Computed example of a mutant assay.
Amino acid sequence: MAKYNSNITFQSLNGETKVTVKHEGWKGSEEWEQAKEWHVQAWEQVLSSLKSKLESGEGALCCK
C-alpha cells in the first residue's frame, strides 16, 4: 500500500492567516497524477468555501 502525507500549516501574516496544504509521497504514474489533480481541485474548493464561510457566513463547507 502506498503512503503519502498531508501537512496543513497556518501562519499569521499582517492580521490574516495563510493556510498551506502540502501533500508528499505521490508516485509518477498517470493514475497518481489524476489522483493528485483531484486533490488539488478539492483543496481549492474546500479552502475557498472555508474562506467565504469565515468572512461572510455564506460558504458551504464541502467539496463536489
Rank of each mutant, 00 (worst) to 15 (best):
E31N: 06
K22A: 09
K22Q: 11
K18N: 04
C62A: 09
E24V: 11
E55I: 15
N5M: 08
K27M: 09
W43I: 05
G57R: 12
W26F: 12
T9P: 03
Y4Q: 02
W26D: 00
K51P: 02
K36E: 05
W43M: 09
V19W: 08
Q11F: 06
G15K: 03
T9M: 04
V40Y: 07
S48I: 15
E16K: 10
A2K: 01
E31R: 06
A35C: 10
I8K: 03
E30F: 06
W43C: 08
C63H: 06
G57L: 15
G57Q: 10
A60V: 05
Q41C: 14
S49T: 00
Y4S: 00
N7S: 12
V19D: 07
E58I: 08
G25V: 14
K64G: 05
N7G: 10
G57A: 14
E33C: 11
W38G: 00
E30T: 12
W38R: 00
S29W: 13
C62D: 04
E16H: 06
E24P: 03
E30S: 07
V46F: 13
G28K: 15
W32V: 04
T20G: 01
Q41K: 14
A60H: 04
E55T: 14
L50M: 12
E33M: 14
W32R: 01
K51T: 07
G15D: 05
S12N: 05
K36Y: 04
E30K: 11
Y4G: 01
K51Y: 08
V40M: 11
S56I: 00
G25H: 14
K53Y: 15
E31D: 05
C62R: 01
W26P: 03
E24C: 09
E37M: 15
H23W: 13
G25K: 14
S56T: 05
T17M: 01
T17N: 01
S29C: 13
Q45G: 03
M1C: 08
V46I: 15
G28W: 14
W32I: 02
E37L: 15
E16L: 08
K27S: 07
L61S: 09
E37V: 13
K36L: 08
A42Y: 09
G59M: 02
K22P: 03
V46K: 02
E31M: 06
F10D: 02
L50K: 03
E37P: 07
Q34N: 13
T9S: 06
E44Y: 11
A35F: 10
N5Y: 08
W38L: 09
L13E: 02
E58H: 07
V21M: 09
S48W: 13
N14Q: 02
G28D: 14
K36N: 05
V40C: 04
E24M: 12
C62P: 03
G15A: 02
S29I: 12
L61G: 06
F10K: 03
A35S: 11
E33P: 06
G15S: 05
Q45P: 01
H39Y: 14
Q34T: 10
S49D: 00
L61E: 09
S6E: 10
V40F: 10
T20L: 02
E55G: 10
S6H: 11
L54C: 01
V21K: 04
E44V: 08
H39D: 11
W32G: 01
G28R: 15
Q34M: 09
K64S: 08
S12T: 10
Q34V: 14
H23M: 13
A60N: 02
S29T: 15
G57W: 14
E16F: 12
Q34R: 09
G59A: 03
S12R: 06
K18H: 01
K18C: 03
A2I: 03
Q34L: 14
